[in-house]
Computed example of a mutant assay.
Amino acid sequence: MRDYPLVGGPVEIRGALDLEATPAGVMPRRLPAWTKEQYQDPSVFGGTVMPSGVRLVFRTDARVLEFVVLTSTGQLDGDPEPRPTGMLDLRVDGALVGRQRAPLGHVLRMAGPGAAQRLIPGEPGTARFDALPAGMKNVELWLPQQTPTELVALRADGEVLAPLPDGRPRWVHHGSSISHCLEADGPTGTWPVVAASLGGAEVTNLSQPGNDMLDPYVARTIRDLPADLISLETGVNIVARNGFRLRTFGPAVHGFLDTIRDGHPDTPLLVVSPVSCPALDGCPGPTAVGRDGRITALGDPAEVALGALSLQVVRDELARIVTARRARDPHLHYLDGRELLGPAEVEDLPDGLHPSAAAYRRMGERFAAHAFADRGPFRGRP
């Protein structure tokens, strides 16, 4: 087995916009380093180091690969085990050939949500994939979407070379936890990755669980990225956190889109409204989690008439904004999120908000069928 560098060598780390040096190796982050000073909520940092859509890409003739990683997961006091570390998915020439649970590393213990954390240090662990197909092949190692993962080492029993350009369109997506997909069965089971695989695109997923709040630093990040396709799933965090009123929501959407258009004036841009969520469809936030583990809305439905936001108000406003802007922006498109997961499928929301693993895959298939269809918004690229 031979060691290959993870930075400055043949391996490409895609889906990450920053590689933060750590004592063990490098930590991929899904937002640029300059954005850190603008985070209002510490949970934004936690979301950026959860590597949804981050993968190592290279070519190799090796039959055996070893990846050394150091994960960080949490554990509530009283829970018998730490939270699952998630899966490492190995694709060869586009096909999933191996899936292993990521090794347990650091554990952050806490008395409850939001409580102070106590670090129980861990050690790097190795995931080994053997009996790989003979000959030169394209390899992708996808990191667990829900677990911060430091990259420590890559070993192979053959040559490792840089990937060749393949001409696939570069798709940049931003959304909420519904697009981050913590509940997916693995990193290649998130709906953006499923859709990208079916549509033949290279996806960068900038989604922020709990923090899709139309933050200007995200819009500037998208503006400055190379992108052939762009999509934005927005609304559920804004309603759940009671982040805007109707008066301020519309201008914030316009400002977010204007910033993206400063860098991508003609790129296909698809705005996706929230999927079904019975608690919030007709009621404003904020939200809480009940004793049954399901989301409940604490807002007053009567406040909607006074400018409070429900998911239906958000859907109507996004559709109105896109329709109005299309008169001068024909590459802007709208998709009602209920076409990805609708009212008849709320049984696929185990906590009343987040889809199941099977539902995420179905959402990816439906998104691809819409966006990448012959007349879909992502097929009419200028």
Rank of each mutant, 00 (worst) to 15 (best):
G337Y: 03
Y334S: 05
V194P: 05
R101G: 00
A196F: 07
V253R: 02
A327N: 08
Y4E: 10
V346D: 14
T287W: 00
P5I: 10
N211P: 01
L141V: 15
A305F: 11
V152H: 14
E123G: 02
I238S: 12
G210M: 06
Q100E: 15
L161N: 07
T296D: 01
T287Q: 00
R63C: 08
T248M: 02
S176L: 08
A184R: 05
T259M: 11
A156F: 01
G255T: 09
I13L: 06
Q208P: 07
P192K: 05
R325T: 00
G186N: 09
G235K: 08
P82A: 11
L151Y: 10
P301E: 04
L132M: 06
N138A: 14
N237Y: 00
A184E: 02
G98T: 05
H354Q: 07
F249N: 09
P51I: 01
R55M: 04
A297T: 10
L151E: 10
F378S: 06
D266T: 15
G243F: 10
Q146N: 10
G94Q: 04
D258Q: 00
D300F: 13
K137W: 03
D77G: 09
E303L: 12
D185G: 12
G200H: 11
L70D: 06
A95V: 13
A308T: 02
W171V: 14
V160R: 00
L311M: 11
G125M: 02
S273D: 07
R220M: 11
E339P: 06
L88R: 14
P268A: 09
H173I: 13
L56G: 13
L280Y: 12
V49L: 01
V313P: 04
Q38C: 13
G299K: 08
P286N: 03
P377C: 14
H370R: 13
D61E: 12
D258E: 04
F67E: 05
D374F: 10
R55I: 05
L56Y: 13
A162S: 14
P124T: 07
R223G: 01
T71H: 08
T259V: 15
G98A: 12
G125N: 07
D61S: 12
D3R: 14
P274H: 05
L229D: 06
I238K: 06
R338S: 13
V289H: 00
S52G: 15
V49P: 04
R55Y: 13
S179K: 07
T248P: 04
D215A: 11
R325S: 00
T71C: 05
D336P: 07
T248Q: 04
V68W: 13
W34L: 15
T190N: 03
G98V: 08
P216T: 15
G342S: 04
M213Q: 14
R83W: 09
D351G: 01
P274F: 06
P265K: 08
V218K: 11
F378E: 09
V239M: 06
I230D: 03
A240Y: 00
Q38F: 15
T190K: 02
A95G: 03
V289E: 00
D212Q: 15
G167Q: 08
F256P: 04
L198D: 02
